[in-house]
Each structure stands twice: as structure tokens, then as C-alpha cells.
Design a protein around this nucleic acid. Structure first.
Length: 267
DNA sequence: CAATGATCCTGTCCGC
DNA sequence: TGCGGACAGGATCATT
């Protein structure tokens, strides 16, 4: 599942592919995948990319026609660059047409992914309120103390809440809680300052390590050239049976997601 | 407001 | 071999 490191890796690939190249159109092959803001009253193509940014798991492409494209991969979305492709692939839900008949295919088995086309001035309408970026200075001890204050929900659920911190998903939350030695079902308000500091430290450490190897490929995630990331080889608890020391792992259902943890190492 | 649960969707895996 | 059911989960919406 694409989380912050995967989305950032894909976005870096998009910038490489689109660099200087004209975008000539956006085609949709599955109803609902492409959303066009009704307030966008003109054809924004052809256009060039002038800026690409990531907010949480959202990619935002700013075009020189003052329109922008928001892409969310959700569970199984992939962006794959293809020089001069012909027929849409079986699970290809949309396609960004490029100059020279090249394309970026949006392939998404489970169809949850979305591509939104809108005028830049309406961006706020399509981006939900997101918490701070976990790799920024704003994600720190005092922020977490304030954010977890009085919260009875499990720390796992809180870290998955994009309004609280933007970009974490199930895999990295499982992993960062293991590194922090904290059980996923601990109520948010029960964590000590020391434990919150560990969460801040290991969240950043984990994300930087995953970014350095192009993210984690557990199912459908691929980089823009369809290559896998490599961080799946460094996971310590997600979808594992034993922790690195050999303790048997437990799997709790929290926020509807499987939560792998080590009852020995995590307290 | 906080917390929880259902919903969307399809490929894969398991048991019978 | 094939079928039914469980499972995977990000974001959104509804309910308590």
C-alpha cells in the first residue's frame, strides 16, 4: 500500500518523466476514477508541469495552465510510464497523455484510486485537513503531546489518522511502534513523554530508510518504471510471524487493520 | 467532538 | 478441480 515513502518515490518518478514534456490530455477508462471539478470551465491541456508536491499520500501536479492534478493511489494504484502504449491494460483506469504519444498509465486493480483535475485556486476543496508531515520539524514531541492529550483511542489508530499526521499507513505504523517498543493498543493519552519522543525519532528514521530504497513493495506497489521498492526486505513485524529476536508475534485488529506486534518487545 | 464500524473493490489464498 | 468465504486496507460516511 503506498504510504509516504512510496508516494514520494512515485512523485519523483513523475517529475523525471514529465520534466519539460507537454501533457496533452487525461483519459478515463473506469467511471469515477477521474474527477473533474465542475468549476474548471476550460480545457487545461496541453500544459507543462511547473511544480510537483506531496501532501501526506496525495500527489499534486501544478500545471502552467493554472490547473492542477491531484493523484491518490489508495491501495493498489500504480503510475507506470509507457512510451507509445496502445490499448489500455486490463486494470488501467486512466491515462495521462503526453507529447510524442507517450503516456503515464494509472493502473489500479481495486479501483479506489482517484485522479482529480481542477483549477489550482480550488485545491483546498479537494484536499482534506491534513496533519503535519512526519519528516518536518512540526512533527515533534510537543505536537504529539498536544495531539494525544485526552485521546483514549489506541495509539495505532491515532497515527493512522491523516488529520493528525499525514502520510503514515498500516505498514509503517506497525514498524514504527515496534521500533519504539510500544504496543499498538495502548491508549494515546497513556504514552509518556519518553515514549512520544521515541515515536517521533523512529518515525523519521523509518521513513528515511524506506525512502532511500524506493519504498516497500508488498503487493501492487511499483515505482514508475514498474520496478519494486526494496524496503520489504527490512520489515521487522509487518506480516511476519516472529520478531527479529525470535518472539512469536500477535496480530490484533485495530481500526479495521491487522496490527502485527511483539508482546515481549512492545509494552 | 471522539470513537467505531460499514462501505467501496478485486485478486489471492485457504479449506472442503 | 472448483467453489465459497475470508482477507487485504485508505478514505469517507454514518452511527453511537
Amino acid at each position: 500500500m503506498p504510504e509516504l515513502p512510496e508516494v514520494q518515490t512515485v512523485l519523483d518518478g513523475v517529475v523525471q518523466v514529465l520534466g519539460g514534456k507537454s501533457i496533452t490530455g487525461l483519459e478515463c477508462y473506469y467511471p469515477g476514477t477521474v474527477i473533474i471539478d465542475p468549476l474548471l470551465d476550460r480545457d487545461p491541456f496541453p500544459a507543462r508541469l511547473i511544480k510537483a508536491e506531496r501532501r501526506g499520500k496525495y500527489m499534486i501536479l501544478h500545471l502552467d495552465s493554472s490547473a492542477c492534478i491531484i493523484i491518490h493511489l489508495r491501495m493498489t494504484g500504480k503510475l507506470v510510464y509507457e512510451p507509445q502504449p496502445d490499448e489500455p491494460h486490463k486494470h488501467e483506469r486512466a491515462r495521462l497523455l503526453l507529447a510524442s504519444d507517450d503516456a503515464l498509465r494509472f493502473i489500479d486493480i481495486r479501483t479506489f484510486g482517484k485522479i482529480t483535475l481542477l483549477d489550482s485556486c480550488n485545491l483546498a476543496k479537494y484536499l482534506p485537513a491534513l496533519g503535519p508531515e512526519p519528516l518536518s520539524q512540526d512533527f515533534n514531541l510537543s505536537y504529539l503531546q498536544q495531539a494525544f492529550k485526552g485521546r483514549k483511542a489506541p495509539v495505532k489508530n491515532l497515527l493512522l489518522d491523516q488529520g493528525l499526521v499525514a502520510g503514515l499507513g498500516n505498514i509503517y505504523v506497525c514498524e514504527l511502534l515496534f521500533r519504539s517498543k510500544i504496543r499498538p493498543d495502548r491508549p494515546g493519552s497513556s504514552l509518556s513523554a519518553k515514549e512520544l519522543r521515541e515515536i517521533v525519532k523512529y518515525t523519521k528514521e523509518l521513513l528515511l530508510e524506506a525512502l532511500a530504497v524506493g519504498g516497500t513493495s508488498v503487493s501492487d506497489y511499483r515505482q514508475i518504471d514498474d520496478k519494486t521498492g526494496e524496503f520489504q526486505h527490512f520489515l521487522r513485524v509487518y506480516q511476519k510471524r516472529e520478531c527479529p529476536v525470535g518472539h512469536k508475534l500477535q496480530n490484533l485488529k485495530l481500526a479495521g487493520r491487522s496490527s502485527f506486534f511483539c508482546p515481549e518487545c512492545q509494552k
